[in-house]
């Protein structure tokens, strides 16, 4: 009896989580402009329409650019900080980590407004570069968390062993540290990319005329006839996001144990 109600609860919970999300793909294939039941037939025309939308493609390009640059820079900064925190007994390392992670807990809207004011005061133009800077604030803590977890798991003697076996610091990084950190680096790149790609509020404040994809979608919501196309776009983003997050989790958990090809 008890088991049955627990199963029911579990299903209800999953439904609560995923039914709203599933609305997107369902209506994106619905052959009607109106988002309402009953469904009126299957179509892929909303998807076909997307590829012809040059404004959308431009926004997509902006999002990819911002996402890739944010991912690379955040992961690089995260890597350096993670190495410092795990390798040396730094005084105040805990406080330092706390400070770096703080942007995670600041509401995005506050972050967006403060950055907007700051950029205005310094004369930095609203642009994709500004968006990247804003996204990095949010992404570096993610990168740091993933990379520290990875670095803490490995024996510091490994790097000493490499030096002992005749390799310089640079070759040691290349032959030992980097291969061992690769899963962490890949996971960090994927997570920070997806965080930047999906982010709306900070980008909304800082992008100026260079709309990113979420901003473009927000703009489209004013036109009811374009709604199905937005749903189609949303479905694609959703699918890619899920795929990337799953991939990120997978590579992150690739054990140190898994043999990899060394340099």
């Amino acid at each position: 009896m008890k088991n049955k109600s627990l199963v029911l609860y579990a299903f209800a919970y999953l439904a609560f989580l995923y039914v709203p999300v599933l609305v997107l793909p369902v209506f994106s294939f619905n052959n009607s402009q109106f988002i309402a039941f009953p469904l009126s037939g299957f179509t892929t025309r909303w998807y076909a329409g997307l590829s012809a939308d040059s404004a959308m493609l431009h926004a997509l390009g902006n999002s990819l650019k911002a996402g890739i640059v944010t991912a690379l820079l955040s992961t690089l900064l995260g890597l350096l900080a993670a190495k410092a925190v795990t390798q040396y007994r730094l005084r105040g390392a805990g406080a330092l980590l706390g400070f770096i992670s703080l942007p995670l807990f600041i509401p995005d809207i506050v972050l967006g407004i403060s950055l907007l004011l700051l950029l205005g005061a310094t004369g930095f133009p609203l642009s994709l570069a500004a968006v990247v800077l804003g996204h990095m604030l949010v992404c570096v803590p993610f990168a740091l968390t993933v990379l520290i977890a990875r670095l803490e798991g490995f024996d510091r003697n490994l790097e000493e062993a490499s030096a002992d076996l005749g390799e310089s610091a640079l070759m040691t990084f290349w032959r030992v540290t980097f291969p061992l950190m690769l899963p962490g680096i890949a996971a960090s790149l994927l997570l920070t990319f997806i965080t930047s790609f999906d982010e709306f509020l900070v980008a909304y404040f800082l992008s100026g005329t260079e709309a990113t994809l979420p901003i473009y979608i927000w703009g489209q919501l004013r036109f009811p006839e374009r709604l199905p196309m937005v749903l189609a776009l949303g479905t694609i983003i959703l699918a890619i996001s899920v795929a990337l997050v799953v991939l990120a989790e997978h590579v992150r958990n690739l054990g140190v144990k898994k043999p990899m090809v060394g340099a």
Partner: peptide, 25 residues
């Protein structure tokens, strides 16, 4: 002389076997 140029080699207490390489490598 830095460690990587010394004519010494060490067996570490933790062994420090490279986890991403097989025995041969």
């Amino acid at each position: 002389v830095p460690p990587h140029q010394r004519p010494t080699n060490m067996v570490f207490q933790s062994y420090a076997i490279f986890p991403h390489l097989n025995v041969f490598d």
